[in-house]
């Protein structure tokens, strides 16, 4: 699902809502990702994105564990 939003194109499901857009302010282009439910923003550069593509499925699944980072403890 996409819509026009100042933070970019929206990618959302019933479980999460983020906006993505290309950011040109740095010396090289980055992907700006905003969690629209909290306002938290993360920039991902080309190498980080390439790493995501190569991330093993199991590692990506680990990141989806709510206690992995966000709700630790």
């Amino acid at each position: 699902m996409t819509a026009i939003h100042p933070a970019g194109e929206i990618i959302e499901s019933e479980f999460a809502s983020v906006a993505v857009k290309l950011d040109h302010d740095g010396n090289a282009v980055r992907l700006r990702v905003e969690d629209l439910r909290t306002g938290r923003v993360r920039f991902l550069d080309a190498l980080e994105l390439e790493s995501l593509v190569w991330l093993a499925d199991g590692h990506l699944t680990q990141l989806l564990d709510p206690s992995h980072e966000r709700w630790r403890g």
Binding site: F15, A16, T61, D65, P66, S67, H68, W71, R72, G73
Partner: peptide
């Protein structure tokens, strides 16, 4: 991800994790 306490499942039904483990 269940909206009540954040328990998260893969789309195979397997429990993937829960907050504050």
């Amino acid at each position: 991800r269940c909206p009540y306490h954040g328990w998260t499942y893969r789309n195979t039904g397997e429990l993937l994790g829960y907050p504050y483990n």
